[in-house]
Design a protein around this nucleic acid. Structure first.
Length: 502
RNA sequence: GGCGCCGUACCCAAGUGGCUAAGGGAGCAGUCUGCAAAACUGCGAUUCAGCGGUUCGAACCCGCUCGGCGCCUCCA
């Protein structure tokens, strides 16, 4: 079985065949660091994080590169607006990027080049294109001549005549062709710049990705990714520059993720209809009581196929959390002691496990079908719950847990201890109250502050048990109530013992 | 104007030519239970925006219509 990916270039799903056996080289367009990331950025980062993880899970050695564009008009504009050096802007938002991606559990790429670290590579490429006659300089600017690149438009399925007919930009009369785009831009007074054969200037928008990908992965590599809004002109231009310069093939497979939309409209800075990752994680716009974690957001984003658009709605996060509660709840029950002896149901578990593993991999192999992969998890959960009623050996339970975690890994789910999973969502107010008391002795579960220690809870359960044995249900119910007020719920088992969650 | 995508149950969402149209959330009923929760069992699209066509057979292919969106300008 091999992994199949949809290739934008051929408009088809294709079995993935790496350039070098057992290795995958991938370059993904990161962000221009001029503001906080919104959900759309999260989706892109997550899509390629999962693709990368799944390749590794499948035994490939992956070389994953994702850039920062840290010099650009938007950064300069923002710096000017705030009256700070432009480097301060890029530095600030690179940090913000790491903070947000960390919360989402996005693994770090192997290399994260920044445009400003590759000025020499950029200049070499621009010069090379000029030497080959594919680019020309005017007044310190250098433009790529699209007319000299016969296959221009092959990725996006556009042709030059159509593009010109629909051109909405005002045309720079100095350009030989309206579609020609800037490789290098002369610095205006007061703007940052680097010395070049054409005077002081800075890179155009598209060239940095060509220079960095070729520098890090060589002229030809396996996968190039990004949001589908980058297909044209960004990726089209990257192909023209890179192939024009190296004379070799560029990326073999082009992978593009769909948008996050709001009321079916693309989430974007210009429309102003965006939610930043920080906002969603911190302010919890879903509901005041929902305890939102990056993992819920991850589950939510993965519950739609990466190429489809995903319409954001506030109820999605609680739904994702409910689905995760069920999975973590299963793990919690599996962690409880089981029979030392093998049991009849153990064999059935083996079968369920085989089916789960098969469906999971089959789904992921098929163009990273994460919604189907999640369905495999949920089906497995149902099977194991049934077997748990019949009884499973301790060994079988451990096997089940091991596999849930193993297959959760490429999705970045189910990796924290079940004890740290917040089954009960403390209200926003209560969380803040607890944080306010952080200086005092406050129990900590994972990174979460909780109101009561496990010892205290166990003690209360014991008191309740004694009350129940005396049929003093009023006392017993009061204890349950008090625990509930502290976001702890009790589940009585048939054998008289009590399980608790928070 | 050019190119392209989408429309599946109350909500989210797989499926893109043939096994009962996955899965999650919400809901209802039942088992269990002092109560509660969990778990389990059952119920929930004779139907895939609409209309035609191709086919032995279509949610899936083709055409048209309706509705929504995207790219062609910065954008993940």
């Amino acid at each position: 079985m091999s992994i199949v990916l949809y290739n934008t270039r051929t408009k088809k799903k294709e079995p993935f065949e790496p350039l070098r056996p057992g290795e995958v080289s991938m370059y993904v367009c990161g962000v221009t660091v001029y503001d906080d990331c919104h959900l759309g950025h999260a989706r892109s980062a997550l899509t390629f994080d999962v693709i990368r993880r799944y390749f590794e899970f499948s035994g490939y050695r992956v070389q994953y590169v994702r850039n920062f564009t840290d010099i650009d008009d938007k950064i300069l504009n923002r710096a000017q607006k705030e009256g700070v050096p432009w480097q301060e802007i890029s530095k600030r938002y690179i940090q913000a990027f790491y903070r947000d991606m960390g919360a989402l559990g996005i693994t770090k790429p192997h290399a994260e080049p920044r445009a400003t670290e590759h000025i020499a590579d950029i200049l070499r490429m621009v010069q090379g294109l000029v030497n080959k006659g594919l680019a020309y300089a005017i007044d310190g600017d250098v433009y790529f001549s699209v007319g000299k690149f016969p296959t221009y438009g092959q990725l996006s399925g556009k042709n030059l005549e159509e593009l010109q007919a629909g051109a909405r930009i005002e045309i720079d009369p100095r350009k030989q062709d309206p579609m020609d785009f800037a490789l290098w831009k002369a610095s205006k007074p007061g703007e940052p710049g680097w010395e070049s054969p054409w005077g002081t200037g800075r890179p155009g928008w598209h060239i940095e990705c060509s220079a960095m990908s070729v520098a890090k992965l060589g002229p030809t590599f396996d996968i190039h990714g990004g949001g589908k809004d980058l297909i044209f002109p960004h990726h089209e231009n990257e192909i023209a520059q890179s192939c024009g310069y190296t004379g070799k093939d560029f990326a073999r497979v082009w992978v593009h993720n769909g948008f996050v939309t709001v009321d079916k409209e693309k989430m974007s800075k210009s429309l102003g209809n965006f939610f930043t990752i920080r906002e969603i994680l911190d302010k919890s716009p879903v509901s005041a009581s929902a305890f939102i974690t990056g993992e819920c957001l991850r589950y939510y984003l993965l519950s739609t196929h990466y190429r489809s658009d995903l319409n954001w709605s506030e109820q999605s996060l609680p739904e994702a959390k409910a689905a995760l509660d069920n999975l973590y709840g299963l793990i919690q029950r599996l962690e409880e002691s089981g029979s030392q002896e093998p049991m009849a149901s153990d064999e059935e578990l083996e079968r369920a496990l085989k089916h789960f593993a098969h469906k999971f991999m089959e789904s992921m192999d098929d163009d990273c079908n994460t919604p189907k992969a999640l369905a495999a998890f949920q089906e497995f959960r149902g099977e194991v719950n049934k077997l748990l009623v019949k009884g499973l050996s301790g060994y079988a339970k451990k096997t089940a847990i091991g596999n849930l975690k193993k297959f959760g890994e490429p999705l970045g789910l189910l990796q924290i201890p079940s004890k740290e999973w917040p089954f009960i969502a403390p209200s926003k107010e209560k969380s803040m109250l607890l944080e306010g008391k952080a200086g005092e002795h406050t129990p900590l579960i994972g990174s979460r502050i909780v109101s009561k220690s496990s010892e205290w809870i166990e003690q209360q359960i014991q008191l309740r048990k004694e009350a129940r044995e005396k049929k003093d249900f009023i006392t017993a119910d009061n204890i349950r109530k008090e625990l509930a007020e502290n976001d702890i719920i009790l589940e009585d088992r048939p054998d008289g013992t009590t399980r608790w969650k928070r």
